[in-house]
Design a protein around this nucleic acid. Structure first.
Length: 228
DNA sequence: ATATGATCATGC
DNA sequence: GCATGATCATAT
């Protein structure tokens, strides 16, 4: 099997995208980087998004940072997920930045979290730090949509977290809130600030936060696909 | 400052 | 050991 070529155009449909992703499984990050003419960093300490960017190049994701899905034409979001030798996720999964103001009228149905997670192409990649970046292998991709139970779990956590945000309690939220979805910092450093609602309803400046999927949730959705 | 892509690394 | 809070690069 030869190393696939990077794609320029976005796929016409989700199945084509999935097939394209399947053709990458088994190859190493070093092989793909070389074929794409990209230099491979020594590790991910500085370029944390490098793996994700590499796969975007191969799958023809709409380059440039847009506010919505990676493949808006076909309604698919791309997520690489680092896994250990047993296939278990090594990290939580960032979903999107949490809106801390202007939330009147926003519901779960119309939320960015739900929209981003409507359909996700998960691409597992070996992520153990003992494995040199260049020799880490791409795994079997999975095209996933939340089932009724998963949607309900996500909705409950999202509503709990958004209630706290709207009620001016964002600074009392920790990563321990939520069963499957959590709120954590998403910033350059802890000095970064964005507007939010304070305890008494007044505007405050606080650390930007993002929604993340907990490992237990992604572990189960991978299992639901790979061992049933 | 906000958005994209996430992983790092210290405290417990 | 591992989750929480902190952090890194880049583009606009």
């Amino acid at each position: 099997m030869s190393i696939p070529l990077p794609t320029t155009l976005p796929p016409q449909d989700a199945q084509t995208l999935l097939e394209r992703a399947k053709s990458l499984s088994g190859f190493t990050l070093g092989e793909l980087a070389q074929r794409a003419g990209l230099t491979i960093p020594p590790d991910l300490k500085r370029e944390k998004g490098w793996v994700g960017m590499l796969l975007e190049v191969y799958l023809g994701a709409s380059a440039g940072s847009k506010p919505e899905q990676d493949f808006p034409e076909i309604g698919v979001e791309l997520k690489t997920i680092p896994i250990d030798h047993s296939g278990n996720p090594l990290e939580t999964t960032f979903v999107c930045v949490a809106p801390l103001t202007g939330n009147s009228g926003v519901t779960w149905e119309s939320s960015h979290v739900r929209h981003k997670l409507t359909r996700v192409l998960w691409i597992p990649v070996e992520g153990e730090r003992q494995i040199p970046l260049a020799t880490r292998r791409i795994g079997t991709p999975l095209l996933w949509s939340p089932n009724a139970e998963e949607d309900e779990q996500l909705r409950q956590d999202w509503e709990e977290l958004m209630d706290l945000i709207v009620l001016g309690k964002v600074e009392s939220i920790t990563a321990r809130h939520g069963e499957v979805l959590q709120l954590r910092p998403k910033a350059a450093n802890n000095k970064a600030r964005t507007e939010a609602i304070g305890e008494k309803g007044q505007p405050i400046m606080t650390l930007p936060r993002g929604f993340y999927l907990k490992k237990s949730f992604t572990r189960q959705l991978l299992a639901r696909h790979f061992l049933l």
